[in-house]
């Protein structure tokens, strides 16, 4: 496996599980193009019936927040408990909140 080093680009894989409502990040893999990335994702990440739908995204297309900004980004939300909707009583008909 090591003698032929892969130069394929990196892809991030998102899989929607049977009961899941949204695609969830499951990992990454290498592939030469999107079609191959989906094929590889099927083989690597859904072989135990994990999924019913796959998204692949070129890893380079993902922009991430910087860890050094985390205080400024996330700490201000700490003391604002009133933003949580837990004070409301949900009608029974409402699913998936």
């Amino acid at each position: 496996m090591s003698e032929n080093k892969s130069n394929w680009p990196l892809w991030e894989v998102f899989v929607r599980s049977r009961q899941g409502l949204g695609h969830k990040h499951v990992g990454s893999l290498h592939a030469s193009d999107a079609e191959m990335a989906i094929g590889n994702a099927r083989d690597v990440y859904t072989r135990r019936q994990e999924g019913v739908s796959i998204w692949v995204v070129p890893a380079e297309s993902i922009s991430a927040s910087s860890p050094s900004d985390s205080e400024a980004l996330f700490d201000p939300a700490n003391d604002k408990v009133y933003r949580h909707p837990t004070f409301f009583v949900l009608p029974d008909e409402v699913n998936h909140m």
Binding site: M1, L29, H30, N40, D43, V44, R47
Partner: peptide
């Protein structure tokens, strides 16, 4: 198994 040119392909062939 363990010899394919890429990890992804290794799994594909053994699948």
């Amino acid at each position: 198994c363990g010899h394919a040119p890429a990890l992804e392909e290794d799994i594909a062939l053994t699948n």
